[in-house]
């Protein structure tokens, strides 16, 4: 019997990203506040129906409408402000310049991951050159030398505790790139690139899901994120580079 991948009353998967702790604590705060408000409102509703006031008096709008509204406004302003700080930290700035670069490409119904190789630059791609049968599923342009050392994989492997900057692209339709345990989600859109950055903190295997309906195989557009200690990651990268070179060699007559 496998251990349940989720935990706690609210049934969240474990968090494995650096920014996830703050996000989780804000999410849980929101959920508990929502539950408390829900209970309170129902208590007032049911009590109000059950009791009978002896002498009906006109209420004061100030106490029943405006003061509670002011209190709610403060509560929501506080939550919104806290959420905005987290949002700004994650999204208003791009990844650190030293962050690892990986490109994610969605196509019906697979995810491809491209590593830039030793030259730290991605080669140009063209949709007209896409040829999965000949080991070029992303259409890397052979005339661009930056592309010669690019490595393409079907599994996202990352070193632990290093920030990664994902560049998201889509070849055909909109896809949604989500790693629940890393608390990230961002759509990949054909014709443009989007970015998302995060730092994985715990080694392990994590789910990658497509979260934007993309066609009949949407439910199986899954992949795995494997987070490895740095030494293991470097070894994996070397193996991949060798494998990829061999594949390309076989593909080109």
């Amino acid at each position: 019997m496998q251990a349940s991948p989720t935990h706690g009353f609210w049934n969240l998967p474990i968090n494995a990203a650096a920014h996830g702790r703050a996000l989780d604590s804000h999410l849980l705060l929101n959920l508990w506040i929502a539950l408390a408000l829900l209970a309170l409102a129902h208590l007032i509703l049911l009590t109000g129906i059950a009791i009978r006031k002896r002498t009906p008096r006109p209420y004061h709008q100030l106490f029943i409408e405006y003061l509670p509204l002011a209190a709610l406004t403060f509560l929501f302003a506080f939550l919104a402000l806290r959420a905005q700080q987290l949002w700004a930290t994650q999204r208003y700035t791009c990844a650190d310049l030293s962050a690892m670069q990986v490109e994610v490409t969605g196509q019906q119904f697979v995810w491809y991951f491209r590593y830039p190789g030793p030259d730290a630059a991605f080669g140009r791609t063209r949709l007209s050159l896409v040829d999965p049968a000949n080991a070029n599923p992303l259409g890397i342009d052979p005339t661009d030398t930056h592309g010669h050392d690019d490595i393409v994989t079907s599994q996202l492997v990352l070193p632990v505790n290093r920030e990664v900057d994902l560049t998201l692209r889509a070849q055909d339709v909109i896809h949604g790139f989500a790693i629940p345990e890393m608390r990230i989600k961002q759509n990949a859109i054909p014709g443009q690139t989007t970015h998302i950055h995060f730092t994985p903190e715990s080694p392990g295997d994590y789910a990658i899901l497509c979260t934007q309906v993309c066609g009949m195989g949407h439910y199986r557009m899954l992949a795995t994120l494997r987070v490895l200690p740095l030494a293991d990651f470097n070894a994996w990268l070397r193996d991949q580079a060798a494998l990829w070179a061999k594949d390309k060699g076989e593909a080109q007559p």
Binding site: Q2, P5, T6, N11, L12, P13, G176, A178, P180, D205, Y206, A207, I208, L209, C210, T211, V213, H218, Y219, R220, L222, A223, T224
Partner: peptide, 20 residues
């Protein structure tokens, strides 16, 4: 627990996504 919408199937898949 992160279950996405529009998934026509939740079982019979592979990997950590399947467990979730």
């Amino acid at each position: 627990a992160a279950e996405p919408r529009h998934y026509s199937q939740l079982s019979g898949l592979a990997g950590p996504s399947a467990t979730l």
